[in-house]
């Protein structure tokens, strides 16, 4: 590793973009940006529609954390599996699920991705191997070990990616699952989105060990953390873990250090009693979206015109999704009793 480079080589090395080793095309990088922007605009609009009572229940927005979902999911293949928790709209959009179906699900309409039966916390799409959003903190983590077990049992090389918040890493079943995944060498990647607060309780007030990824050390599992406000770092870390899972069937536990700019859910103020306005403003300086845009503009991969066009295009997509959701019918009354049993 310790190769000595000449000055010339050093200069050349320094001019290389930081993603040059990842084999990502310019188009792919633009796509990363576009997906993050879609999530941001979609979530902003979801908040508006929530205010208009078009969306009910809990509604946990992903604003601020877009780089984690997009970078991680971009590292997957179509035949890989994804589990999410209750903050799942961003993951669903990153997976390429139709914004119309996601918005319709939020509106509780039959055209929603879960036919209006799941809502904000339970987005499902079997056709995208999107195995669902789950509402019990940590409760879905063993399911991800299950699909990883299943693909291995069936002799397939699919990988399972499981998102959860840092608060889930205190749950018993999280530890049970990490143990089973390490013990049985399951092809699963655990991505812990550490947004610093489990609802309103800061990491320091809830965890004896603040480096969440270190919890995996108890199971001798490959582990690490990355900057969750940087889509490239997210992609890099998850891609490496996914490759390891696919080629040598080994699990990895990753901690994405990120931050949510909105409240825990729609009924929660942006900073509340548990964090200051100044803290939130400070964190917004590392907003992953403008940060990546600047980098792409600087590198000549994106032009301002293209950014503006993209904004307009996404606005239209979101408008269309809201219109579709608004005009879609509610599930018929028979749905009440359908799908309780097969």
């Amino acid at each position: 590793m310790a190769t000595v480079l000449s000055m010339k080589e050093k200069t050349k090395e320094a001019r290389k973009p930081r993603w040059s080793d990842l084999g990502l095309s310019s188009a792919r990088l633009v796509d990363f940006y576009k997906r993050m922007l879609l999530i941001r605009r979609f979530e902003e609009r979801a908040a508006q529609e929530y205010g208009k009572s078009k969306i009910g229940g809990f509604c946990h927005l992903y604003i601020g954390q877009e780089a984690v979902g997009v970078g991680a999911i971009e590292a997957l293949r179509e035949d890989d599996y994804i589990f999410s928790a209750y903050r799942d709209h961003g993951h669903a959009l990153a997976r390429g699920m139709d914004p119309k179906g996601i918005m319709a699900e939020l509106f509780g309409k039959v055209t929603g991705c879960s036919k209006g039966m799941g809502g904000s916390m339970h987005m499902f799409d079997a056709s995208k191997n999107f195995m669902g959003g789950y509402g019990i903190v940590g409760g879905h983590v063993p399911l991800a070990a299950g699909t990883a077990f299943g693909t291995k049992y069936l002799g397939k090389d699919s990988v399972t990616l499981c998102f959860f918040g840092e608060a889930a890493a205190n749950q018993g079943v999280f530890h049970e699952t990490l143990n089973l995944a390490a013990l049985w060498k399951l092809p699963v990647v655990f991505v812990c989105e550490n947004n610093r607060y489990g609802m309103g309780t800061a990491v320091e007030r809830a965890h004896a060990v603040w480096d969440i990824y270190q919890k995996a050390s108890a199971y001798d599992m490959a582990r690490g953390w990355f900057d969750g406000m940087d889509v490239i770092e997210s992609y890099r870390a998850v891609k490496e873990a996914v490759d390891r899972a696919r080629t040598s069937s080994e699990p990895t536990m990753l901690e994405a250090r990120t931050y949510r700019f909105r409240g825990h859910s729609m009924s929660d103020p942006i900073h509340g009693h548990y964090r200051t306005k100044e803290e939130v403003e400070e964190q917004k300086k590392s907003d992953p979206i403008p940060r990546f845009a600047e980098e792409l503009l600087r590198g000549g991969i994106l032009t301002q015109t293209a950014v503006d066009d993209m904004e307009a295009e996404i606005k239209a997509v979101v408008n269309e999704a809201v219109e579709f959701a608004d005009q879609s019918p509610e599930p018929p009354a028979e749905f009440l009793h359908e799908n309780v049993y097969v």
Binding site: P142, A145, T147, L180
Partner: peptide, 26 residues
């Protein structure tokens, strides 16, 4: 061993694992 599997004493873990496996056809 592939089809008759001893688990650790971890009921929530292996119940959940079984459910996940069932979701993809096992």
């Amino acid at each position: 061993e592939k089809r008759v599997i001893d688990t650790p004493i971890t009921e929530a873990g292996f119940a959940g694992l079984g459910i996940g496996a069932a979701m993809i056809g096992l």
